[in-house]
Design a protein around this nucleic acid. Sequence first.
RNA 1: UGGGACGUCGCCAAGUCGGUUAAGGCACGGGGUUUUGAUCCCCGCAUUCGCAGGUUCGAAUCCUGCCGUCCCAGCCA
Length: 566
Amino acid sequence: MSSETAVTPTNFIRNIIIQDLETGKHDGIITRFPPEPNGHLHIGHAKSICLNFGVAAEFGGRTNLRFDDTNPLKENEDFMLAIMEDVRWLGFEWDELLHASDYFQQLYEYALHLIKTGKAYVEELSAEEIREYRGTLKKPGRESPYRDRPVEENLDLFERMKAGEFADGTLALRARIDMASPNINMRDPVVYRIRNASHHRTGDEWHIYPMYDWAHGISDAIEGITHSLCTLEFEDHRPLYDWFLDNIPAPCHPRQIEFARGNLDYTVMSKRRLRELVEEGLVNGWDDPRMPTLAGLRRRGFTPEAIRAFWTEMGVSKADSIIAMGVLENAVRSDLNVRAPRTMAVLDPVKVVLTNFPEGETEWLEAPVHPQDEAMGTRKVALTREIWIERGDFMEDPPRKFFRMKPGGEVRLRNAFIVQCNDVIKDEQGEITELHCTFDPDTRSGMPGASRKVKGTIHWVSAEHGRPVEIRLCDRLFTVPNPLGEKGRDYREFLNPHSLDVIQNAIVEPHVADGAAGDFYQFERTGYFCHDNVDSKPGRPVLNRIVTLRDSWARIEKEMAQAGKN
RNA sequence: UGGGACGUCGCCAAGUCGGUUAAGGCACGGGGUUUUGAUCCCCGCAUUCGCAGGUUCGAAUCCUGCCGUCCCAGCCA
């Protein structure tokens, strides 16, 4: 069971597809998710994954996972494996697993066709010269002196490039389009470059590698992709995408449609930035629970159901946007709320002695695993004379609206009974070490007096039975909404020093300490937590805080503090 | 006058070809339920669609002009 809604919000891409199906342009649709295996997937990729797989599934179509592996210098097998794991974890299974490198031979033959039809030539200008000849955004470019090289010569040179006769960067194959085009992508783009490098899949077979623009559209066409969905920055490439397919005997002509990337505030999403964070040791790897990578979110405890629901709620458009992190967090809360077993855990313990509770005895209480879902059953909770409660749940001199424990006041112990605080014991420093309380046996859960109302209910754990665990309080990675947008400042300056606070000895109910990776809980009144899938080991449990509960009391406190200042 | 795109409530976002009252979610405010100040349930929340004109009986939707934001000068993707 999950909280995912069945609602499919409409969007412009979906509308295009519906139209193409209705007009008979297509009988069925095929999409693809085409990552370059040069890094890890992040929450932004999840948007594309959900879109591509989601829309195909909705209309009975298919979706391929295709690795865009045209640059052997940056890509490797490990990234491929990690990406496959991430896509599957998100809940999607591809129809075919493919690679741009599967098409290297076909791509090469199409290039031959382009040369033979006089639409491509071998360039001898250096990369720097090409840049000069390209012109600028406002000024047209100049034609290369090699632009009118005879076909036979082009064929010969290209053949020898392929054979590995030339050094990297000496020659390149260029499409012969229009050096004066206002669209720079059309100014004779490079189609093939020489890379005497080993490719992780094709080994040393190739010495030339196709550029993205050449490989992508053709790969789409070979696979019979009907709708090639990509992000906004490729809008300017669409004329080139179309030009290539129009100038080769392509099996079909997919339609490229661009949509806006999904950005989030309080984080960074570009591969470059994420890589820097990892390589500079600012986080503990790609799967650091604070990272927006799917590996990080998974370790943090975000569920695939929540991420999918989040992206379908957010929709797809062409407007640049930065989504509030709170919206994602909320999607996680609503998914976990219906599924997470409840338990009590004390993060910052202070001891309470129930002075009228018999010494050395344990009373086993029955508590629901989920208050709104009886099917989840009950659990036994041990109550003893000494228990732990949250330090923040006691105030010696509380404000008016404080409903928790205070001297002389009554408060309910969750799943147990009402207690009254009689004594506050402190050490020489004035630090509270113990609270002495008496309980009212008539108010025990299940007893007639249980219905007596008190304002507050607090959670607790038996001092004798509770078990210590390490808890990592995950929070936003940055202290500002847009760390990259602060002019004149480096984004690293805004790393949140409290993005990963560690609590060494929090106290949990025994079964939580015995849990394993993949187990998650709601610590009542505190938040959602899960076992860290890397560091949590039997005998040494480590839990991550996935997300806090909504906390209107925190808001009230903040307002009161604010009011006090003013 | 390089080219391409986008601007609807604090954050997302419906709103295809103009037709009486501008979806929905999150956030927010108010109320109710509650042994989680959680959840859940009600109610409220854009006379207004970047701005200014124009066309029209009627425009967020059409036209014109401004303004703002993003993308493009890798032999990266």
